[in-house]
Design a protein around this nucleic acid. Sequence first.
DNA 1: ATAGGGTTAG
Length: 591
Amino acid sequence: MRLLKPQEAAALQREALEAHIVALLRRCPGLLALRGAHAHLLRLRLPRLTAAFALSKLLAACASARAAASSYARNLFDQIPDPTAFCYNSLIRALPAAGPALAAYRRMLRAGSPRPNSFTLAFALKACAAAPAPAEGRQLHAQAFRQGLEPGAYVQTGLLNLYAKCEEVALARTVFDGMAGDGNLVAWSAMIGGYSRVGMVNEALGLFREMQAAGVEPDEVTMVSVISACAKAGALDLGRWVHAYIDRKGITIDLELSTALIDMYAKCGLIERARGVFDAMVERDTKAWSAMIVGLAIHGLVDDALRLFSRMLELKVQPNNVTFIGVLSACAHSGLVDDGRRYWSIMQKLGIKASMENYGCMVDLLCRSGLLDDAYSFVIGMPISPNSVIWRALLVASKSSNRIDIVESASKRLLELEPLNPENYVLLSNLYASNSQWDRVSYMRKRMKDNNVTAVAGCSSIEINGYLHKFVVSDDSHPEIKEIRLVLREIADRVRRAGHKPWTAAVLHDVGEEEKEVALCEHSERLAIAYGLLKTKAPRAIRVVKNLRFCPDCHEVAKIISKSYNREIIVRDRVRFHKFMGGSCSCKDFW
DNA sequence: ATAGGGTTAG
């Protein structure tokens, strides 16, 4: 479009001027363009009324451009003589943080006029949901109620989403039930997303079924939450079905849905399908790349993960701390200490602030490579207080060392942080037992008893011919336990002969007495795999389902076993893997 | 009159 000259503007009617302003702002994608348009409008010396119109339109454009432009938006707002509700609403929408947005809302209430309308509330609620700021949201809810505002569909879904974002599923459900049967797709999606977020996958998937029964057609946003629930549940068959459903319904597989699918296939063990989805994408953002890199890393496809990361950098996609979780854990899986250190410094150079998980990856990498001293000084030098995962990693690594100082300080910190986690007592007790410090062992037992902590047995299960066989830690009552142990021994031999890295061997190390020294849950996991090999002779899929715990190596182990026995083993990983970063045992987190 | 709600990687 052609920009007007001041004398042309002066000759135009108000309607024509307003049309010019609207057309101009429609073509402004971001803050810079908006400032340009603003400058142009100032040059036109618009009449007072039209100038106010231009300012409110600018403010609205500023809000929808979602540019970090709080101060600019406030500035625009202050230039409007008698702000209308539209102006207030645009201002609230333009302020991304809950605090400033609510301050603008209160300012509106104090001014007495104009009165807030349903748009005002919807924007303010959205700000609270994005924060998330549950207390402020509730306050808003109460205030709006006192103001006698009619809760329309947008306000209701705003509230529902606020509670869903704050992980208050029961409250969200109350709002959802209150709007029952109005066929509001957004409400269904928000509720399914809320359940999925807190890991209530059965509720999420159940609600998806109810939604279909109610005749509400899902869209791609709904399907993101549904797929994400499948990923969290490790529900491969359902996930595949949902993918087919998406295709059948002609639902667009956009950036977000592709990312969710990559994550689902990777977590459910089908890394090639994940790769297929990634390759088919036309546009990939940081999250998509990260999902793929992390997926490859947990499958032990280290070279692929690192190659993909290089490609990401080449294509100038900005990595973040999550991307580096994938990169660093890939290095840890292959013992690439030097590479890991190099990536760590790349991360710093890129100005990415390391998260607790990033520190965990680095400690894991150093520990797995036997560099206990380096790991310890790394932990001591951390600018944030290390979490329990990190202390556990150090403890596991110092087991066969003589570093009593490390054991002492790590165990002290660990029990301070998590005095009620049975896993810690089991770990320490085993550690002291292996050093024959029996007084310490009984002291641990005593502390455990004093704190009323009881260990709950871990279990894994395997699906063979539709039957679910369950294995519980240290339960040897299985009628075929002797044969199972033979298979286990054979697996250990084959894995050793395959000449893979020692840290994988540790997972499948000797059975029998020594086994008690390794992580409790691994026992059941290994029994399940061994039983599967014992029972299925033909080269077919053995699926280890819903394991309560998987170490990061399990995909590598599965690969070795698959190759060596010529049978496909699909490992379903329903656990967020950063939780057990550190190669140690872990029980409580996974119940 | 103008505008609006739900989604993804750890």
